[in-house]
């Protein structure tokens, strides 16, 4: 199994992950190596096996509908890269 340079670029775009052009090849190689590892999974017949998403066979606990959080906007926005008038600023969003 191998991953092409263009597949790596597609994934990088989906993940909005900038990768240097000169590194694309090495990512393709590493990921292909990982995929090789993964193809071992096909050695095992898993027909009829229920996929396991959590280690515990538990169900979701529900929270009472009560307002418990008082928001300190100043504290949260002190760590933000760019804010104005209480809003987080980003480059213009075009719809």
């Amino acid at each position: 199994m191998s991953l092409t340079v263009s597949e790596v670029k597609d994934c990088a775009h989906l993940a909005r992950l900038g990768i240097e052009e000169r590194d694309v090849g090495s990512y393709a190689k590493d990921l292909s190596g990982m995929l090789d590892l993964m193809t071992q999974m096909n050695d095992l017949d898993t027909d009829g096996v229920e996929p396991m998403a959590h280690p515990m066979d538990q169900v979701q606990r529900l929270r009472a509908d009560v307002v418990t959080e008082q928001v300190d906007r100043e504290k949260f926005q002190a760590i933000a890269p760019q804010v104005e008038a209480g809003l987080y600023l980003v480059p213009k969003v075009i719809e």
Binding site: M38, M41, N42, L44, T46, V49, E50, P51, M52, A53
Partner: peptide, 9 residues
Amino acid sequence: IKAQKIRRL
């Protein structure tokens, strides 16, 4: 899904 099935096993 395959990995999750193996996780079960």
